[in-house]
């Protein structure tokens, strides 16, 4: 059983990097979005089980996207990991307050990313059922 994941980041290279990390794990079905609005559109069209969401993006930023998805019944079940280079405590708190299930500071290694996802697996499989 594969887990559907959407990766949203305005940096093209981050999208390929995170995708490559997930692909190597083999459990994921990966889609990408290159800005906040694209992420919202993709989630509304077909909610993934997991969203890896960048914090700072031009236009609609990750914090706003997170809040919007968590407050809409159709998308509130998506597990969201925010990954951001904004690492100050205030931003971590802001991400969690926006409804993120985990806040992953950049830079991160593949084991850290996969570990964070594994920690959220019970929640993910619950949704899958």
């Amino acid at each position: 059983m594969s887990i559907s994941v959407l990766v949203a980041d305005d940096e093209r290279l981050i999208l390929s990097m995170v995708s490559a990390m997930l692909q190597r794990d083999g459990r994921f079905e990966i889609a990408t979005a290159s800005n906040g609005q694209e992420a919202i559109d993709a989630c509304e069209a077909s909610p993934p089980e997991l969203l890896l969401l960048n914090g700072m993006m031009p236009g609609l930023d990750g914090f706003a996207v997170c809040q919007m998805l968590k407050s809409s019944p159709r998308t509130s079940g998506i597990t969201i990991i925010m990954m951001s280079a904004l690492t100050q405590k205030s931003f971590v708190e802001k991400g969690l307050a926006a409804g993120a299930d985990h806040y992953l500071p950049k830079p991160f290694t593949r084991p850290t990313l996969i570990g964070a996802i594994d920690a959220l697996l019970p929640q993910l499989s619950l949704l899958a059922k």
Binding site: I14, M17, A20, A85, T87, K106, T109
Partner: peptide
């Protein structure tokens, strides 16, 4: 500054690891 530095470092680290 931290954000600006961490963004390229994320990719340098990530791709090196891969």
């Amino acid at each position: 500054a931290s954000h600006e530095l961490r963004t390229p470092m994320t990719m340098m680290m990530g791709f090196t690891e891969l």
